[in-house]
């Protein structure tokens, strides 16, 4: 399934989203600086719309409010906000897929690249190029046992960034392999993926979308196969 939460900023500031979409967008906001900026900007305008219809309340309201606050305990200041976790929130975060990829990359970068900042930067640059391509599209799919695979693909760059989280760990003789799938041609390998036990897997940058419409995922012998040995257990559409 494909999502572009970015165009929901207008309906969001107008409170014109349904509950589910609203929660989804709010979950997306902290991960997406562009969306947060746009939302704050549009909010200035809705504030003006609100001020335009100001109307004095009945005078009795003042006494009622002052009485009520006098007997209402104030809530303590919130502690420093933790980063929202994509886990345990059902499907809400699907909309955050694009930013999720970045979060995953950030986490992996921190974990793997203590002594290799240059490599990390280079990887980030290449991933960012795909994610910010004007024709970038995101799709996310979930396996039956709750693992998630997210793909951001761009036709103009001929590249796809593939990330996963919570994929089942495989015996050392096996590996996950990604395939470019086209109706008119044999599957082509798009790379292999070996998820570590304790954190999201490496993102793969796959080049050569060609005429593929989908990416599929299979389990293969370690090192990968020239052709998939079974039907893919997961497929995702490409841009």
């Amino acid at each position: 399934m494909t999502h572009d939460p970015h165009d929901l900023a207008g309906p969001y500031v107008l409170d014109a989203l349904g509950d589910t979409e609203r929660r989804r967008f709010e979950h997306h906001l902290p991960r997406c600086a562009a969306c947060a900026d746009e939302t704050a900007g549009l909010r200035e305008t809705t504030t003006r719309l609100a001020l335009a219809v100001a109307h004095p309340p009945p005078p009795e309201l003042r006494a009622r409010v002052m009485t009520e606050i006098a007997r209402t305990r104030q809530s303590p200041p919130p502690l420093r906000r933790r980063l929202p976790s994509p886990r345990g929130r059902g499907g809400n975060w699907l909309a955050a897929a694009a930013c999720l990829v970045l979060a995953v990359v950030g986490a992996i970068t921190a974990a793997h690249f203590h002594g290799d900042a240059e490599h990390a930067q280079d990887l980030n640059r290449r991933i960012a190029a795909v994610m910010t391509a004007p024709d970038a599209q995101t799709s996310t799919a979930q396996t039956r046992d709750g693992a998630t695979v997210t793909i951001v693909s761009s036709r103009s760059l001929d590249k796809a960034v593939i990330t996963s989280s919570r994929l089942k760990r495989l015996p050392t003789a096996k590996t996950y392999q990604m395939w470019f799938l086209a109706t008119s041609a044999a599957p082509r390998s798009a790379g292999i993926m070996r998820p570590p036990a304790d954190r999201p897997s490496w993102p793969i940058i796959a080049t050569g979308l060609g005429n593929a419409q989908q990416i599929g995922m299979t389990i293969e012998p370690a090192g990968g196969s020239p052709q998939p040995s079974s039907a893919p257990f997961l497929t995702l559409p490409l841009a």
Binding site: A50, L51, V53, A54, H55, P56, P57, L61, R62, V65, M66, I69
Partner: peptide, 18 residues
């Protein structure tokens, strides 16, 4: 808070009424 009330009760009430 009373000053906040004077400033915001009109906009808040008017918006809710609308």
């Amino acid at each position: 808070f009373e000053v906040v009330y004077q400033r915001l009760s009109g906009p808040v009430y008017g918006l809710a009424l609308r």
